[in-house]
Simulated assay, not measured.
Amino acid sequence: MDLVTPSIGLIFWQAILFILLFFLLAKFAWKPILRLIEDREEYLQASLRVAQKAQQEMNSLELEKEIWLKQSRAQRDLLLKETRTLSDQIIHQAKENAQNERHEILLQTKILIENQKKAALADIKNQVADLSISIAEKLLQKELKNDKEQEKLVSNLLADLKDFP
């Protein structure tokens, strides 16, 4: 039964060894262990702060990315709208130019046709005048073979000229 009930001397020496071990640990081990624990705690706190800061920066970058994407989309839409407007203007201008050229060509064609018509009419008039003169000459030569008839014709023409205003 000696093993189950310790003696007073054994308790005394165990208490002295415990107190001695406690002071040695307090003097040489507790401070470094506590310092390591505090350092580890500070490192973890610093890591948490860095992680939180990184998370905030990621959120900030995500917001900036969203804003940049919205701005890019808005610029793209604006450029597409301007391009459509410009292409519509170019098409409209081209249609107007084509219309103006068509009108100008039609006008020039009408003027050319009118000039050719006038030239043809003038040519026809000249031909009619030449034919008329030729016919009149032949008729006059036939009818005015003698001098009396010629004098009578000249006096009639002079009389007509006097009546002419």
Results as ranks from 00 to 15, higher is better:
residue 127 Q to F: 11
residue 65 K to I: 11
residue 149 E to D: 11
residue 39 D to E: 05
residue 155 S to H: 07
residue 148 K to I: 04
residue 67 I to G: 05
residue 165 P to N: 10
residue 107 L to Y: 09
residue 82 E to F: 04
residue 157 L to A: 06
residue 99 Q to C: 12
residue 10 L to S: 01
residue 149 E to F: 10
residue 157 L to R: 05
residue 146 N to R: 09
residue 63 L to S: 12
residue 111 I to F: 11
residue 150 Q to K: 15
residue 138 K to P: 07
residue 159 A to I: 04
residue 48 L to S: 00
residue 5 T to E: 09
residue 92 H to R: 12
residue 94 A to P: 06
residue 58 M to E: 05
residue 79 L to V: 13
residue 41 E to P: 06
residue 101 E to D: 02
residue 10 L to M: 07
residue 89 Q to E: 14
residue 51 A to R: 05
residue 55 Q to P: 03
residue 143 E to V: 04
residue 120 A to F: 13
residue 126 N to G: 01
residue 49 R to E: 00
residue 100 N to Q: 14
residue 50 V to T: 15
residue 33 I to D: 02
residue 95 K to T: 10
residue 104 E to P: 15
residue 123 D to T: 01
residue 165 P to S: 13
residue 108 Q to D: 03
residue 162 K to R: 15
residue 156 N to E: 13
residue 46 A to D: 00
residue 130 D to M: 11
residue 142 K to L: 11
residue 148 K to T: 03
residue 62 E to G: 04
residue 8 I to E: 01
residue 52 Q to M: 03
residue 89 Q to P: 04
residue 14 Q to Y: 00
residue 51 A to C: 06
residue 85 T to W: 06
residue 146 N to Q: 12
residue 138 K to T: 08
residue 151 E to P: 12
residue 147 D to K: 02
residue 59 N to L: 15
residue 13 W to E: 05
residue 6 P to Y: 11
residue 157 L to E: 02
residue 127 Q to V: 10
residue 165 P to E: 14
residue 115 N to Q: 15
residue 40 R to C: 10
residue 70 K to Y: 05
residue 94 A to V: 07
residue 141 Q to W: 09
residue 2 D to W: 01
residue 24 L to E: 12
residue 83 T to D: 14
residue 77 D to T: 06
residue 98 A to N: 14
residue 102 R to G: 08
residue 44 L to S: 01
residue 53 K to E: 13
residue 164 F to T: 12
residue 38 E to P: 08
residue 108 Q to N: 01
